[in-house]
Amino acid sequence: MNNTVLEVKHLKTYFFTRSGVVKAVDGISFGLRKGESLCLVGESGCGKTATALSILRLIDSPPGRIIGGEILYHGEDLLRCSSERLRQIRGNRIAMIFQDPQTSLNPVFTIGDQVAEQIKLHLRLKHKPAMERALYLMEQVGIPQARERMKDYPHQFSGGMKQRVMIAAALSCEPEILIADEPTTALDTTIKAQILDIFRDLKQERNMSILFITHDLGTVAGIADRIIVMYGGRVAEAGTALDIFDQPKHPYTHGLFNCLPNISAGRNRLTPIPGMIPSLIDPPEGCIFNPRCEHRMPICSEERPKEVVLSGEHFVACHLYS
């Protein structure tokens, strides 16, 4: 049975800047299934946000352009549908939450108006029923005294509460897919735990598919069913959460785990990954990770590694395994 709701095939998103072409997303493929949470993990500049924005065609153009690939939502290619059709899907069937709730809210409208806005648009409800639905959603995501707080403006909300508002707004049309781009990164530890709980409930109670983007492996461990590790605009390794955490294969995945501070280990030196993240304007030849890799072989700087299936859903793009 095919229960894939969203399929990304060979996606390429480039940014055409004055200093050159930035290959932010360079041939990425994955599928998102009904009711699963898939995490895109990687450091800054690995193309995880560009991938998410490409799915809903939200890439700023110029300088960005999706130059190849397909994004199939139940078989329908979102890259080739009309903008009117895309508007029906965006926010309605596929909703997105951004990292910084501050910049995603309009400071001159009340919170209630902003949550109700898309309800009016997509569900074609009048003001009053739309506001009632907005109230219901805000209560669902745990905003205390929601009826009074609907009349407040964004600046009267704390960061954690604003992120709850964004989640309420994203849920307004009961989307099938939720794309969350670093939704907890700007939040404090105790608030982050509260928000992650909301995501877990959403998945369980509404059987929602979540594409969760983060750089924080701790957050990933708490939420992911499957994980895709990205590096330099490409997939380095993918598999179930247990595949990645218990048996990481790609040297970059290994490196990411090794350099995490560990409370139980004590005051020891960490094992960092040497060097730095490469420029995507002029990326290294062959495997993009090869200049930082301790297992580098001659072939690594010559040929781009293909994806090797290790077991079930676990695959890795590394010459060590081919």
């Binding site: 990411l256 090794n258 030196r269 960490l270 960092p272 993240i277």
Partner: peptide, 13 residues
């Protein structure tokens, strides 16, 4: 980023 964070923490120690 985490990979760079580890380098700087080592340097600080």
């Amino acid at each position: 980023d985490v990979s760079v964070q580890a380098q700087i923490l080592n340097l600080i120690m």
